[in-house]
Design a protein around this nucleic acid. Sequence first.
DNA 1: ATTGATAGTTTACATTGCCTACTATCGGTA
DNA 2: TACCGATAGTAGGCAATGTAAACTATCAAT
Lengths: 166, 166
Amino acid sequence: MNAKTRKLSQSLPLGRRFGLLMRLYFGALTKKLEQLDIDRHFSILILIEDSEEGFCNQQYLSNTLNIDKTSMVRMIDYLVGKGYIRRASNPEDRREHRILLTEKAHRILPRIHRAINDLNSKATNGLNTSQLKQFYKDLDLLAENLAHEPRHTIIMNLEKAKSTRK
Amino acid sequence: MNAKTRKLSQSLPLGRRFGLLMRLYFGALTKKLEQLDIDRHFSILILIEDSEEGFCNQQYLSNTLNIDKTSMVRMIDYLVGKGYIRRASNPEDRREHRILLTEKAHRILPRIHRAINDLNSKATNGLNTSQLKQFYKDLDLLAENLAHEPRHTIIMNLEKAKSTRK
DNA sequence: ATTGATAGTTTACATTGCCTACTATCGGTA
DNA sequence: TACCGATAGTAGGCAATGTAAACTATCAAT
């Protein structure tokens, strides 16, 4: 809290703020959905649900969610182990695994959607419709700008600490 | 890319976008500073520099950067090992370690500042002054909103993959 | 039949946040 | 003076993830 502090927030990497927001967001989301027997990878379920029935393979999930394919294997394993999805080989291209939702997944997806919609709203509470629109546009712009920068590979890790569940 | 896809971006957790931005940002920052013999924890150096000479302890760093104190110990160890900072016990409170920059740190800090300022600018390229101001305000608002949500503890991990350096 | 590309898996490594437990020290108080 | 709670920092361990490298299986084209 010294004289120079006023400019500190601008001197620090902008990426730090995004990291903090991510932590806060997923901390809250996990809390909202703590009664489920999974505590992560909700996005994967949503993306599978969104994709054409039976046309979702792991590569598609990886690319769309920006998760590398070896991590995706583990995440799929996790969700398979919990009984929310299953792998089905595609007879038209036997290299592929089509990822399918189970009944169990369909049952909990409404709750997941509610939690996410609710949290997205709460997070942006205080912004009016046009501000919200602009904010999303800004995020897209930042991502676009940063995607064109040369970069090292960087790891992002998201996990619940007290994982009594397995 | 099916009919439902149009709404997909709104159905996914907002936190995902922040995670992506964080990865892109730090990937680019690490790249920009790859000639240095450290590849992370630049924020710590900046915060030490910003704080009053000799009044920066680990607790302060942890709180300000939202990093838990056991992780901070390891980060400090890393920077000490690289010769950028040193721990000095405070005679007025011998529990404390005052963290001080070395000459080596002072020499590279200008380069770090340049890289961060440059990247912050490039990331927000396309926003005019008032839009930029609003965007930063929005980020603060989101953080404020999310901080009030009940939450689980969540882990964020940032690391360079190919760490040939040690 | 060979060759190159693609989908997915496995293993290993490094790092981080969190937890628990611990030491040392400070400050107040009985 | 002696105790007690709080604070600063450390140590060890766990779980999870991105990445790399090496590998299998399959496809598509020549």
